[in-house]
Simulated assay, not measured.
Amino acid sequence: MCRNITELRGLNPPASAEEVEAAAAQFIRKVTGIARPTGATADAVQEAVREVAEITGRLLAGLPARRQEPKTVPPLRRPEVRRRLGLDQAQPAPAGKAAPPAGSARH
């Protein structure tokens, strides 16, 4: 359904709260069709993102470990995305894995 949401389970290091929230926001954008919430929708959208992120965090914490890491690199771990968003420090790709070129992630 949400082709842009990457797998967060099994990441090394584990998915950060920021990555979980970004995935939750993408999910809410997709199901609502609201890309940029305005005054009339902002509170409801933000509350939904918070709730989905909270549930996702609990879900990830309760699942067993994976045998191998996901094949895709979450957007917030991609240097080009972090630069575009103006985030302070780019997280390097997990050891032994190079970040794929932009747009090449499996969907």
Rank of each mutant, 00 (worst) to 15 (best):
M1V: 08
M1L: 13
C2S: 12
C2V: 13
C2K: 11
I5E: 14
I5R: 15
I5K: 15
T6K: 09
L8Y: 08
R9Y: 00
R9H: 15
L11C: 05
L11A: 07
N12I: 10
P14L: 05
P14T: 05
A15M: 07
A15E: 09
A15K: 08
A15Q: 09
S16E: 08
S16Q: 07
A17T: 12
E18W: 02
E18T: 11
E19W: 01
E19M: 05
E19T: 04
E19Q: 10
V20E: 02
E21G: 03
A22H: 08
A23R: 07
Q26E: 10
F27T: 07
F27V: 09
I28D: 00
I28Q: 01
K30E: 07
K30Q: 07
V31H: 02
V31L: 07
G33C: 02
I34P: 01
I34V: 14
A35G: 08
A35T: 06
R36Q: 10
P37W: 00
T38Q: 01
G39D: 06
G39C: 03
A40P: 03
A40D: 06
T41I: 00
A42E: 08
D43L: 00
A44M: 06
A44P: 00
V45T: 08
Q46A: 05
A48C: 12
V49G: 01
R50L: 02
E51Y: 09
V52Y: 08
V52Q: 04
A53G: 04
A53E: 02
E54N: 10
E54R: 15
T56Q: 13
T56A: 15
T56M: 14
T56F: 08
T56V: 06
T56E: 11
R58L: 09
L60I: 13
L60M: 08
A61V: 09
A61W: 10
A61L: 06
G62H: 06
G62N: 12
L63D: 05
A65I: 07
R66S: 15
R67M: 03
Q68H: 11
Q68G: 06
Q68V: 02
P70A: 13
P70H: 12
V73T: 13
P75L: 15
P75K: 12
L76G: 01
L76R: 04
R77A: 05
R77N: 08
R78N: 12
P79G: 04
E80R: 11
V81N: 08
V81H: 10
V81W: 13
R82A: 15
R82M: 14
R83L: 14
R84H: 10
G86F: 06
L87W: 11
D88M: 11
A90T: 13
A90Y: 04
Q91A: 08
Q91P: 01
P92D: 14
A93D: 11
A93G: 14
P94R: 10
P94N: 09
P94Y: 11
G96A: 11
G96L: 09
K97S: 11
K97C: 11
A98H: 08
A99L: 07
A99M: 04
P100Y: 06
P101C: 03
P101E: 14
A102G: 04
S104K: 14
A105P: 00
A105Q: 14
H107I: 01
H107N: 10
